[in-house]
Design a protein around this nucleic acid. Structure first.
Lengths: 229, 229
DNA sequence: TAGTGGTCTAGACCACCCC
DNA sequence: GGGTGGTCTAGACCACTAA
């Protein structure tokens, strides 16, 4: 009875669900499991590694494999391109540039990220619409010291996110989500009232040691970010 | 010059960053890469599979491997146990049960999830404190048809989340995040003002076809969910 | 239909780390 | 020290799909 690594994953998950292997329990070693499932150790190994990756199991050399006591699963999510996100709902996507200015790095930004003092940044504000209803206000700073060619872009047609994703590779990004109260100005853009709750994402992107860009994304009312575990 | 799969990953990422392989470019086949890196095809394969998993590459049989045109990376995050989340900041965690009642399934809930009409649910409201400051209000429903033993738990000492994670395995969960305005009641619990923006998480958990539990988590002001890409 | 990735094998050596 | 998982190999067969 040959098993694939996916069969093994499913089987292990079932045993955990049926409390054959409750949280905290030790599993047999890879060799033993390979015999039971009638496959090579590498196959068992792949199944187990993926279960570790999903947050179900813990493994340590010599100590063996066990079910996590509190199996808090890991979820994955993508920050999709906003155009794709909107079009996937069937709505028409529209982009509009609001402001564009080259300025010296504001103090709060140079404190937060590593941009040389006296460096210049490109500050952009853009609106994203779904079927002509405000969907997201994007407040973005691009580090011109790191990405000088951004200055030549007018960003009238293509949004900075889409341009950056295509043109500028990055090595790391920090991401955070929070709820903020709309200022009068933000409320006007999003067609809401001052003080309304606004789902806000903040993102900082790095290439090795250089900060590339920082963005604040304000979503209009009713936005939900969803995922599956 | 032997390479490990991690060396290969790093090398591929570098070539992408240096625009040797720009977005949309086709990569050589696995056999060719294996020769170049001086390793077995399986090693290359593992490196490439992981890069697909991280959202950098796309692969299709026959067509080959290419850099995604819009490399929107996948982030992973864990929904940590709130106790661990709070204690990891150095604050003291305190839990308190607010309400506990067994009721018939409310209409809005039975519509949203699959609980038999006339079924009973355990409705709980709990507070989580960080150093005695309100941190999260948890509004939870547990399906007693699926989890009858929950009725015997008083949840005075252990929160329902912690109990469920340890006692009840699940197969799937839906998760969503949004910003809502605090009602007067929620504001009172969180020590805020009515109408304040509240970061809200909603979670529904399933075991095969049965809905197990549904929870709404209201975080107090200033909460940020952060992750790295 | 031919070429690519997807998976599996049987064996090997190694690194880590609990006992 | 010895047992566990972590990784690698050389080869094989298979599944999908673009041409």
């Amino acid at each position: 009875m040959r098993s694939s690594y996916q069969d093994i994953k499913a089987d292990v998950l079932n045993r955990i669900r049926q409390n054959i292997w409750p949280p905290g329990a030790n599993l047999p070693g890879e060799i033993e499991l390979a015999e039971e499932f009638g496959c090579a150790r590498a196959t068992v190994n792949r199944a187990m590694r993926e279960l570790v990756d999903e947050g179900i199991l813990e493994r340590k050399r010599k100590a063996g494999t066990r079910v996590k006591s509190f199996p808090t699963r890991k979820a994955r999510f993508t920050i999709p391109l906003i155009r794709e996100e909107i079009e996937s709902t069937g709505a028409a996507y529209r982009y509009a540039l609001v402001d564009r200015e080259v300025i010296a790095v504001p103090g709060w930004l140079s404190a937060q990220v590593k941009i040389p003092r006296n460096g210049q940044v490109l500050h952009l504000r853009c609106m994203h619409f779904a079927s002509n209803k405000p969907y997201q206000l994007e407040d973005r700073w691009i580090n011109l010291t790191a990405i000088p060619k951004a200055e030549k872009q007018d960003f009238e047609v293509i949004g900075p996110n889409e341009w950056l994703v295509r043109e500028v590779p990055f090595s790391e990004a920090d991401l955070s989500f929070s709820a903020t109260s709309a200022t009068q100005e933000i409320a006007d853009f999003l067609d809401q009232k001052e003080g309304d709750a606004v789902f806000t994402a903040e993102r900082t992107t790095w290439l090795d040691e250089d900060n590339i860009t920082h963005a604040r994304l304000y979503f209009s009312q009713g936005y939900k970010m969803t995922t599956k575990l």
